[in-house]
């Protein structure tokens, strides 16, 4: 294309400029098309989930939906807290204090880090029935094949009994 359009040996500035400007326009036109496939505002509005904690007794657990995934909210007893702080986990060591804001509330995404199944609460901790991974009461993996601890979502306490998941 260049060769045909270029007038002899003279460098054709006008052609180059027009090509660049036109190309930029084509690229910019693609933006709305690509952007339209991103989550729409009503989907993004679901990015935050509010949880009322007053109904969860010590030792109890609620599973809530956040961005379409299960989140485990575990009200830990003093014994469970003691057991969790005593170790740092085995496969993906991490102190319990780094995984909670208030020690009595553990908030983790209930999706096994191995293949994405939802683990079951069984005894202390969770067991994933897809491939047998096991997690403790801090959501840390203590038996493979899962490689990582259960993820901690961003969250904060908006009041004494209100938990907001999705925003730190």
């Amino acid at each position: 294309m260049e060769e045909v359009l270029n007038d002899g040996n003279r460098r054709n500035f006008l052609l180059k400029l027009t090509t660049v400007v036109g190309g930029a326009g084509v690229a910019a036109t693609c933006v709305p098309f690509v952007a339209s496939m991103n989550p729409s505002t009503d989907v993004l509005a679901k990015a935050v989930t509010e949880v009322d904690l007053s109904g969860i007794p010590p030792g109890g657990m609620h599973t809530v939906a956040w961005q379409g995934q299960p989140v485990f909210v575990l009200h830990r007893t003093p014994e469970e807290i003691a057991a969790s702080t005593a170790t740092n986990g085995v496969i993906d060591p991490e102190p319990d204090a780094k995984r909670v804001i208030k020690p009595e509330w553990l908030v983790v995404v209930g999706v096994c880090t191995h293949m994405g199944c939802v683990p079951n609460k069984e005894g202390p901790g969770w067991i994933c029935h897809c491939h047998g991974s096991q997690y403790d009461d801090s959501g840390r993996v203590i038996r493979g094949p899962a490689p990582k601890n259960l993820a901690v979502p961003p969250y904060h306490f908006s009041s004494e009994n209100k938990l907001v998941i999705g925003k730190a």
Partner: peptide, 13 residues
């Protein structure tokens, strides 16, 4: 604005 610039360039080209 963009289209005006582009069309002017195309006209001279």
């Amino acid at each position: 604005g963009y289209l005006f610039v582009l069309t002017t360039l195309l006209y001279f080209l």
